[in-house]
Design a protein around this nucleic acid. Sequence first.
RNA 1: GGAGAGGUGGCUGAGUGGCCUAAAGCAGCGGUUUGCUAAACCGCCGUCCGGCGUAAGCCGGACCGAGGGUUCGAAUCCCUCCCUCUCCGCCA
Length: 427
Amino acid sequence: MLDLSYLRKNQAGVKALVKRRNMNVDIDRLIEVDRERRRLISASDELRAQRNQLSDLIPKLQGEKRAESIAQVQEIKAKLSAADAELSPLESEFNDLYLKVPNLLDPAVPVGKDDSDNVEIRSWGTPPVFDFQPLDHVELGERAGLIDFEKAVQVAGAKFYFLMRDAVRLEYSLIWYALGLLEKDGYVPIKAPVLAKKEILQGTGYNPRGEETQIYSIADTDLGMIATSEISIAGYLAGEMLEEKALPLRYAGISECYRTEAGNYGRFSKGLYRVHHFDKVEMFAFTKPDESELIHQSMVAMEEKIFQGLKIPYRVVDICDGDMGGVAYRKYDLEGWMPGRGDNGSYGEITSCSNCTDYQARRLNIRYRPANGAAEYVHTLNGTAIAISRALIVILENYQRADGSIEIPDVLKAFMGKEIIEPTRKN
RNA sequence: GGAGAGGUGGCUGAGUGGCCUAAAGCAGCGGUUUGCUAAACCGCCGUCCGGCGUAAGCCGGACCGAGGGUUCGAAUCCCUCCCUCUCCGCCA
């Protein structure tokens, strides 16, 4: 959420912002509703002031004077409830629109229309050269009995999957590996609730209802299933007044993530790439405003450390305005090399790291009190440490061998208790 | 799930219909005093919305878990919901 007075003063700038982000928010209508709403609030305040004055007087009055004043107040009350009736639909329209207004952008964010305009800022590793035709993770996984999509269709429908055998061990090894690095760096491990209230979902910038929602809702409650533990962790400190010296607060969240993926049936949504649920280790930070950029860099550096350890070739991409969504002020993705994708492989998103500045903190009312001065909103940041489904894609595809077996990355061998995954299932 | 007690500013906590403009304390900020530190004393000190003002500010409104209601007037009374604590029941 943007500061309201900023919005009023920078109407044109906010309109440009909405456009740059490829969003559709009627700022003109928002300003109009705001003006109308303020007019009504002023009128109501005026009526209330009259009422309060009279009410103060009444106990000192007697007889006819008193009866007269009471009648006057009753008249004012009638006007007040009429004004409120007029106000309340405006308030809800205002809130709906206001919640849609996106965050500001870092001036350095690349300009572009969609993900094709994202800017590669560095890369690491060299895509492997195979002397055989590499397979994609779907085929590798099914042959080795690691992943079963068909049975998942039977149980839950498309975009679900069973992970089995060594894929399960890989999942836990990856979690253990990432958690080790994060905890060593000062992140506090946290297992978060996988359901969150509507106000928390909205506060984090997710729209829990509506056609384009990414969030599954639970019938007859105001709960939704989290799309990432970012939501629960942000909510963890909602309404808090933090101590300056406690900042930055950094957490390593582990949770299942649930996504409706409404309308996402693209070319690259095959297999594990785009699924309705997956496990994820997430980094989350609450920081002072002047340190969020530095922490953002450190989070991206941690993502790189994790994938360098796994020896997965990747590139770091600076997300352009048109591809950014509404919440992030700046966003970097890691794209890992996926040999099974396209003709000769291509890069696909494996992590995403956002500095949300005070956008979420304002909605969730998370502040801190500086040594000298008034309370301020903190900044929030989130970044993927390991999204299991995506990590499995790059590991299976990069570590495959001619016979369909899969080598285990060195850093996971101890956790796996083995060095190789056999090419075909044996049980 | 049942019974009872609660939810008040950054924190503790008083307040059971108008004198609440929310007491008091703590913490914080400014000052006086002062070898230093500390103490003592004095003053300031909630948030949001609207209006006025170049401005320090001034005026009005709202906010005592959330939302409704009663009343001329609600932190206070009533209803619904959420949460916390104690006890009971059930259960990995």
